[in-house]
Design a protein around this nucleic acid. Structure first.
Lengths: 253, 253
DNA sequence: CGTGATATTGATTCCACTCAATATGAGTGG
DNA sequence: CCACTCATATTGAGTGGAATCAATATCACG
């Protein structure tokens, strides 16, 4: 167990507080992890989809490429994230997904997953919750790009990454590694790379953030969040209902 | 049946080709429709959620409000759309939702819905498919706002609305009613209202679109789509896998 | 016919983009 | 260990697309 995608287990645990039996089922599904390198494609738009994928280590991202050659990063995936279950119903990958860093992944076939749902319906609910969290993150980035200026936008993104990286109870680290080049950040935030550079300087001048290479240090979380208009509730999954239900319940996820 | 949310039934039908038995279950769930007026709130962020809602007639939208008073429209809902099932798991509404026009809605309690899923699992799958379609639309708007200029952005939005309004087989109408003020459009597309006006003129000059008040006429669909970089595949739900499965299958949605 | 919301048009401003030049750093091979 | 190269980042100068401000114009409605 310790060795098996501990990130993911911890995440699911946090959502539905799995029973021993359910955890055992998950462990049964253990697959040989595969090592991947920065820049590797996990899949392309239109590829046929019959597996779910767990990102054990490393960062990944989904992206859309436009006719003019530019690209837009849609989702950023962190260690422990589960990828490619949205395609469960229609069987075709919807976006290109590639690794931002070296990493390690495990794959699970949809057919195994369906079996698993039969025996542990609350896992299905957990996936549904995760899907909604993703939708919320996407919506929040939409708001950021549509309505916030460059400084707020970058600040908001940093707040989000920071919040996602912290392990829920009592984790107050203010520094973290953000393995995105300024080009990547530009593609994620709908800005130009040079303006990312200037905006970082500007945040540094305000004494909010320090950065060297890929290392970020949040100097003043409170002021940064206020500047960004960041409210992290969309990242939490309040699963009051879900947790209080009997294991036999049937949510649509 | 004819009288009961025919829009919605047609939509679900298209996704999972319901059996007579499943249709019968849906009809059992029929609820008294409620009339609503333009501007009415369907719910607010944080409201407790225990019902799913079907928009029988009229348009609605979800929105985020920012501290500076501006707002961002997130999703546009059309007649037949199903609202508020993402909150099934955590029990709290995630966004404000209000009516753009007068309309008519029906509500269904989550508990009834769960029963229904027990008896007709493919309905659960259908909801999952719809949720993914929504995610795809949101992603597409993100791309639009982040990467396309004002003209492409508006053009893309018009293409999307047009495509969503057409009934799948052999519907080639080129005119439709778009009941959004220029302020609404601005809030949806991340622009200012005056620039919406100018951009409409610009599209008209190019001979792509004609418009009076809320009436849109697509003069040259092909050139408009090319200008916008519009590719409507994200609106379709290819349900090859889903349709070919036995009714007892168990997708996570 | 007057009133208020909505839309158009013009003038001006500004934020972020582009282009271009330089700097920094990591990796490679001599 | 140094010189070279390539990718990435910084900084400056100039441009431009869309925002803002402001002044009509149009329309729906009582």
């Amino acid at each position: 167990m310790q060795d098996f995608s501990s990130h993911m287990i911890r995440r699911l645990q946090h959502i539905v507080s799995l029973t021993r039996a359910e955890l055992a089922l998950l462990v049964d599904m253990k697959r040989a992890p595969r090592a991947v390198s920065a820049g590797d494609w996990l899949w392309h738009e239109g590829d046929s989809a019959d597996t779910l994928l767990v990102l054990r280590e490393g960062w990944a991202c989904s992206a859309r490429y436009l006719p003019d050659g530019s690209r837009q990063l849609l989702e950023i995936f962190l260690p422990g994230d589960i990828l490619g279950f949205g395609e469960l119903a229609d069987g075709a990958r919807r976006n290109d997904v590639s690794m931002l860093t070296d990493g390690e992944i495990s794959e699970y076939s949809y057919s195994h997953l369906r079996e698993l749902f039969e025996r542990a319906p609350r896992l299905r609910s957990a996936l549904f919750v995760i899907a909604n969290q993703r939708q919320a993150m996407l919506a929040e980035r939409l708001v950021s790009i549509a309505r916030r200026n460059a400084r707020q936008r970058l600040a908001h993104f940093l707040c989000e990454c920071h919040a996602r990286l912290l392990e829920p109870p009592h984790d107050t680290r203010q520094g973290f590694l953000l393995p995105l080049s300024q080009q990547d950040l530009a593609d994620a935030l709908g800005m130009s790379p040079v303006h990312i550079s200037r905006t970082f300087s500007s945040l540094a001048c305000l004494g909010l953030v320090r950065r060297q290479h890929y290392h970020i240090l949040i100097l003043d979380p409170v002021r940064l969040e206020r500047l960004a208009g960041f409210n992290g509730t969309y990242l939490q999954c309040d699963t009051q209902l879900l947790a209080s239900e009997p294991p036999t319940s049937a949510e649509p996820g």
